[in-house]
Nucleic acid binder design. Sequence first.
DNA 1: ATACATGCAAACATTTTGCTTTGGC
DNA 2: GCCAAAGCAAAATGTTTGCATGTAT
Lengths: 135, 135
Amino acid sequence: MMKRARDAGLRRTNALENILSILVHAHQPLSLADIAESPDLTSGADKATVYRILVKLDELSLIRRLGLHDRSAYYTILQPGRHDDYLICTQCGRIQTLDIQCPVEALEKQIEKESGFRKLYHELEFYGLCPSCSP
Amino acid sequence: MMKRARDAGLRRTNALENILSILVHAHQPLSLADIAESPDLTSGADKATVYRILVKLDELSLIRRLGLHDRSAYYTILQPGRHDDYLICTQCGRIQTLDIQCPVEALEKQIEKESGFRKLYHELEFYGLCPSCSP
DNA sequence: ATACATGCAAACATTTTGCTTTGGC
DNA sequence: GCCAAAGCAAAATGTTTGCATGTAT
C-alpha cells in the first residue's frame, strides 16, 4: 500500500505508515476516532492529521469511506479482489464482517451499463439485533 | 400510516401528519433538514420537533434511518412489501431510487439463521459518478 | 530550499438535550 | 387536568479549516 501511496505523490511519514498499517490489519471499518486513538498510531498524530491523510487516501481510492449508521464515517482499505459486506447490531453498534460471497457483483455491472454511472461500487450492510442485545 | 402511529400511542398533531405525508410521498430518502425545510411542513414545525418525531417513528419501525455517504442521516418510510435500493453520485450527491428486484432477500434469511441476529434488514447502495459529473 | 505535512485551536454542520409552554386526549 | 408534544436555545458530537511550524524530498 505504501508503494501506491508514494506513487501518488504522498510523502513517507510516520503517520501515513501507521494509518495504512492500521487499516490493512483492521477486521472491520474504522472511524476517524478509532484510528486517531489507536495504540498502533505510534506517532501520536493529531486528529486533524489523521483526517487529512484519510481524505487523501480516499481521493486516491486507496481506501473507501463508508456511511454506516452512527454519526461518524468509517474507513476501509481498498485492495483489488477484496470486498466486504457487514452485519451490524442496531443496538450496540457492533460491526461484524460477513464471510459471504457478495451477491450483487453481476447486478452492479448491469446497473453500470444501464444507468450511465461510471466507476460503480456498492455497499451492502445487514442490520439487526445481535444475540447479546436480543431480549 | 397515521393509524399505525396512533396505535402506537402518538398524538395526532400537525407536525406528525405533515411528516408522515412528506415521507410517504418522497421518491428518495430525506434528511432531517430536507423535512424541516420542506414547504409541505405546513405547520412550520421546529427542527427539534421534527427530530423527535423522526426518532419516535424510527423506534416504532414506521420509518428507517439510513446512513448514506454525506454527513447527515436520511429517512425513508417503511411499508410492508416496499424496499428500495439506491444509486448515488459520489460527486454531486444525487440519489436515485433503483427500480430493481432486490437480490439479497434470500441471503438475508440465511444470515438471520446463521448469525443469531434478529430482526434483520439490509441496506444496499450503489455509488458512482453520474453522467453529469463524469468528465 | 522548497513544498508538503503536522499540530493546535478555532470554525462548522448537524444532532441531541433541557426546560418552559402549548395543546391533544 | 394531565401528560405528551412543541418551541427555543444551548450543549454535544464529529468534521473541517487556518495558520504557523516542522520535515521529507
